[in-house]
């Protein structure tokens, strides 16, 4: 007769694990290798995922850093100083900061994005200072902030969705429409000091019926939904 050391319940002789808490049974017939094998069965999958992320990050890092080096060398060899290369360099730096923080910093998505946003803001401040123009702070920074906030919102909503399918696609379409409105608003305010929306309204107007159609299809096909249970009063 075996007794689980965690739950204290009585187990049958042929049980190697407690069915309640999955604690391995330490009986004479169980070798330590078997116990180790059972208790570590979940670990390889997690490691595999992390390894894949790391490889992707390494590839991204090589591409971005070599891009920075290449543009810098070309710019310096032709113009003799840093001029146009500041733009691809700063974009590569910002993308690199997002990729690195997402992969290397094990924290919540909120803090990862916040840290990447702070680094990107510093990059934009530097660009602003080096080219002596105000658009990096007055246009690029607000757009970057809007993209971050909408991205976080999408992530939050998707995390809380029980069924993920066409509803995620419709969410992305709505986000694109909102982002277009925000981008045009920021640009128009920068140039004419008034928020005047033109093309973004057309984009939104086109996307909304598409979203409605996708949502309709989603609800029609989702588990043969019984509307009475959803709308009962």
């Amino acid at each position: 007769m075996n007794i689980c050391k965690e739950c204290g319940v009585e187990l049958d002789d042929d049980m190697m694990l407690c069915p309640l808490c999955e604690t391995p049974v330490l009986s004479a017939g169980t070798s330590k290798d078997v116990i180790l094998q059972i208790s570590k069965k979940e670990i390889p999958q997690v490691r595999k995922k992390n390894l894949l992320q790391l490889i992707l990050w390494q590839i991204t890092a090589v591409l971005l850093l070599s891009g920075i080096a290449a543009t810098l060398i070309i710019n310096l060899s032709i113009q003799g100083s840093i001029t146009w290369s500041i733009y691809p360099m700063s974009i590569c730096l910002m993308v690199f900061s997002y990729a690195s923080l997402m992969v290397l910093w094990r924290t919540t998505i909120f803090f990862q994005v916040l840290a990447a946003w702070i680094i990107s803001t510093l990059v934009l401040v530097m660009v602003n200072w080096s080219i002596e123009a105000d658009w990096p702070l007055l246009v690029a920074l607000p757009i970057l902030s809007a993209v971050n906030i909408i991205g976080l919102l999408i992530k939050f909503i998707v995390m809380h969705l029980k069924a993920k399918g066409l509803n995620v696609l419709s969410l992305i379409f709505v986000s694109i429409a909102v982002l277009c409105l925000i981008i045009e608003g920021i640009i128009s305010f920068y140039f004419i000091k008034v928020i005047e929306l033109r093309w973004s309204v057309i984009v939104a107007a086109c996307l909304l019926p598409v979203t409605a159609a996708i949502l309709f299809m989603y609800f029609r096909t989702k588990n043969n939904t019984d509307f009475q249970k959803i709308f009962h009063t």
Binding site: C4, E6, L20, C21, K229, I230, T233
Partner: peptide, 23 residues
């Protein structure tokens, strides 16, 4: 429990009864 538009409701789930260690 599931969210309806006006009230929560209870939806049958064909899952096994959950037995857990009391720890």
């Amino acid at each position: 429990p599931k969210k309806g538009f006006f009230w929560y409701y209870l939806e049958f789930q064909n899952e096994s009864m959950p037995l857990r260690p009391d720890l």
